[in-house]
Amino acid sequence: MGAYVLNRVLQLIPVLWLISVIVFAVMHILPGDPAALMLAGAEGGAVTPQRLDELREEMGLNDPLLVQYGRFLGNALIGDLGTSVRFRTEVTGLVLERFPSTLELAISGLFVALLIGVPLGMIAAVRQNTWVDATAMSISYVGASMPIYFLGLVLILLFAFNLRWLPAAGSEGWDSLILPAVTLGFVSAGLISRLVRSSLIEVLGEDYIRTSRAKGLVERIVLSRHALRNALIPVITIVGLQFGNMLAGAVVTETVFSRPGLGRLTVNAILSKDYPLVQGCVLFLATAYLLVNLMVDIAYAWLDPRIRYGK
């Protein structure tokens, strides 16, 4: 197990490096002058050539690309992601300040996704090819095809404006988290329920299930103790991938519900052309996503020993 973990951690290093290259390359090689964009965004209108050149020098944009990249990587490694143009403060501070709110949203979204997705898939599998199955799968289908902002707006309309049960916006109190979490979780619930269904159907056809039924176990025990336990293993891998969806969805969800998170910070940074902030946010989110997937992989290997020895 120790060797497996070490191996996975080591594998992470080149991927992280490549991601820093991609982020840097996209931001610096694609057309568009960061300094000009920043001046236009920050100081509005009149951009003098001198001011532009000063800023280019200040930002190190006149140096060769490789030197720029080296500086970017070196600073990022010690946690320095540069200075935001709009907020005039350290990007790292801004990111860390907003991250807990996004993490809270992503975790509760994942919780909702599992809370809806797993039972939905189970019911569909147990009642395979009946109207129950068809209904459950239709719900999951709609969930997976739903624009996240639209679901958010519908939920606000229903539960905040008409029924007045929950707040429509903000981030104070636990009740303000419910609608965003459901919005975010529902899409993934669709995918998870389909996976649980097919995985459980496969497991239910296994010999050991027939054996446990044959020896007279109650169906409930067969399901909970033998079938579900094995059926849920593949679900764990998708949970890590779903965390990426959660981050993506958080960008939209935070805007719909006016939550001050990292997603909204990123979008506002793009809209206000705050280059260093965009770069920092994306790098941070990508790293968070990789680390979550690393943890999921380790959990998976721990649950399923075949993985550890497979490779």
Partner: peptide
């Protein structure tokens, strides 16, 4: 394959966001 792996390790929405950040909305 290495390039593809790196891109797959990167949530596509983040890639979309930085591309839009540098090309403009």
């Amino acid at each position: 394959s290495r390039f593809v792996d790196a891109m797959l390790a990167f949530p596509s929405i983040l890639l979309a966001l930085i591309i839009i950040a540098s090309l403009g909305p």
